[in-house]
Design a binder for these strands. Sequence first.
DNA 1: GTGAAAGCGCTAACAT
DNA 2: ATGTTAGCGCTTTCAC
Lengths: 347, 347
Amino acid sequence: MSNDRRSEPSVTQPVTLQQIASELGVSTATVSLALRGSEAVARATRERVQTRARELGYVYNRSAASLRTARSHMIAVCVHDITNPYFAELLKGVERAAMSEGRMMLLGTYDEDFERQQRLLATFREYRPDGLVLCPAVGTTIEDLRSLTDTGTPIVQLSREIVGSGLDFVGSEDGAGARLATEHLIGLGHRRIAFFGGVDGASTSDNRRRAYRQALAAHGLPVDGALFYSGWGRRETGLLAIDAMLDLAEPPTAAVCFNDVTAFGAMLGLYRRGMTPGRDFALVGYDDTLEASQWFPGLTSLRHTFPPGPVAGETLFSRLRDPGRPQQRRAIAPTLIVRGTSQPPKA
Amino acid sequence: MSNDRRSEPSVTQPVTLQQIASELGVSTATVSLALRGSEAVARATRERVQTRARELGYVYNRSAASLRTARSHMIAVCVHDITNPYFAELLKGVERAAMSEGRMMLLGTYDEDFERQQRLLATFREYRPDGLVLCPAVGTTIEDLRSLTDTGTPIVQLSREIVGSGLDFVGSEDGAGARLATEHLIGLGHRRIAFFGGVDGASTSDNRRRAYRQALAAHGLPVDGALFYSGWGRRETGLLAIDAMLDLAEPPTAAVCFNDVTAFGAMLGLYRRGMTPGRDFALVGYDDTLEASQWFPGLTSLRHTFPPGPVAGETLFSRLRDPGRPQQRRAIAPTLIVRGTSQPPKA
DNA sequence: GTGAAAGCGCTAACAT
DNA sequence: ATGTTAGCGCTTTCAC
């Protein structure tokens, strides 16, 4: 019974091209071509090979192919945090794009730690990914990526951008988004508007904050340093920010948040104080994550007109197809989705 | 200027072992051993090799090594959804464990689609991961993993379990957790307790629901089919569940939720109706995600006594070290963390 | 349309 | 302590 595995699809030792070739009395070259569906090999042979391969449970050995072709068919993805739902969605998009191009995703996260990022990138290199999707750590310069770029590994910057790097970029048109958010709140009648979240040195926060300042100035409103609450775009930042702001002698009545997660934190902070987001304090998020519409009240946020994850994937693949093309910079325009958290100030 | 790259660390063509060997007038075998820090090669030689390798910007080629050794140094991770913060945290743990063992993580998600999982696993195989961490799709049987197990790829089941598969498992002691949650609510005086979320066929939900039923029965309470609201453990499930339950002629006063995310959805549903979680309806989550303590009120939940992510990683690595060892089954006991969402029923 | 042969960069016997 | 050699499983000229 247990010996009767002559025609079983797969046993323990992996089947190789060579085995299929000798079984069928053809060369490995023919098998190789046939399995990849080459027109160069006769239809009949092709099918014979494919059938036998299936029967034997042949599995392509990518290590061997990679060694030979110097293409790994993997893309490396390096982001700070997958716990942020926005990045989780982004990653999902990148993965979908990779899979549809027949590639696998090597994932690494660095938790906003530059050194960890550098170690990660060094390790990635050994695996020879065909390309890298990177949301660079704060402080990363083009020099820090030299080891990758020198060997010709294409890099697509996701979300954050190293200014002047010349590398492909996919992310948000941060300035436009923050301006929309700020002007929306001004239009509702708010005069003291805070900014919650974001850290110096990340292009996303630098750009969003600048646009916020400019929008205030453009409407003749003062920019008050006390109304900035910095921090990573995490829930606790929003939680702490709202407390800090409401304890001010002259508290703001609204805040532009660096991202949705920060805004959710602020909403929770309001609840804790027995206040209602929207009615008692206006908030605008950024990213329009799935959660934004589910919260109560719904979070006003900025939605990208294209999904950045898949676009990042496609950008990388088009770069692989044409390494010589000029830098691709896809700053995706956001649109404001108005929900319950943005209401006029009371009285 | 730009020609002056004689001693630059890395140019465009990758440096190989062979190059280092001939530069130094030693054999590739020596270089190979030296770079891996083998004691077999003289200290002086070892250092000479390592120094020169660094100077030349040598990068280990894993494709070549993998082909030779039949170890890829990658582990594949396959889960349904990284958007769920619990799984995001899990993944982070697996990644940490992998990195500390010098391995990379290949990630794929299947979005609760069995066919997608199967395609993913088929693709994974080509990359020859040293092992697989899998949260199996509903309906997966041991037969569906045959292609992996036959080739000797060790699999660690994460969170969900295929009963009788004999494969290593790391997850929650679901029955114990759900019993704790249910008895806690009963102890508070609740008599009509619902169960929100979970789907038939996932070991996690099957086990949690069974324990919930048993706990009710053990306390002489009826098990009412109308108090089950099924669905993937996502926010919208909780949102829909609370609405469905509160519209009942005789609504429950509390619910055990399949996971934290479902509970958050239920909390949002309560807010939408102008009700306060805890005071107007009691909720218990499962997983004790970071968010649980940040919400208002804090979500009562079940916390694992060990972090499952790292444990899953370690389990896989210990399996790699000793393929013959008996099945490892790490059902992690949860403890109840009581917060504001679980209060006695009103009046 | 198919085959022969070389070789990608590494490791592991086995010599010396 | 170091070198020689073979070979992992593919792909790719280049013949025929």
